[in-house]
């Protein structure tokens, strides 16, 4: 049953664009070597894939709300006044 569900989920996540981040393996408590090999291998795969796009997607969502989709290109009188420099530097990290 687990196998069925996990195989299904691998395909579904691939459709979403999140392939390769789910892995299922049966390892007995006596198979220490296999456990090490599996975890090391999977860690390597994940490292190669890079950080999960879910986190950056969550942040981007809020950026989109404030971003103006079309830059204002009307006459100068309609341009918003330039913001006075507050002197506060916001570190971009």
């Amino acid at each position: 049953m687990t196998l069925k569900r996990m195989t299904f989920l691998q395909h579904l996540l691939d459709f979403m664009g999140l392939a390769g981040r789910l892995h299922l393996e049966w390892i007995s408590s006596a198979e220490a070597q296999r456990f090490v090999a599996t975890v090391t291998g999977f860690t390597e795969t994940i490292r190669r894939l890079g950080p999960s796009p879910l986190r950056s997607a969550a942040l981007r969502r809020y950026d989109n709300i404030s971003a103006a989709p079309v830059p204002c290109s009307g006459p100068a009188s309609l341009q918003p006044p330039a913001m006075p420099d507050s002197g506060i530097q916001i570190a971009n990290g």
Binding site: L3, K4, T7, D14, G20, H23, E25, L49
Partner: peptide, 12 residues
């Protein structure tokens, strides 16, 4: 009986 075997990681 089981009709599937664990899939290797999907090739990415």
């Amino acid at each position: 009986k089981p009709t599937m075997s664990p899939q290797p990681l999907l090739a990415v």
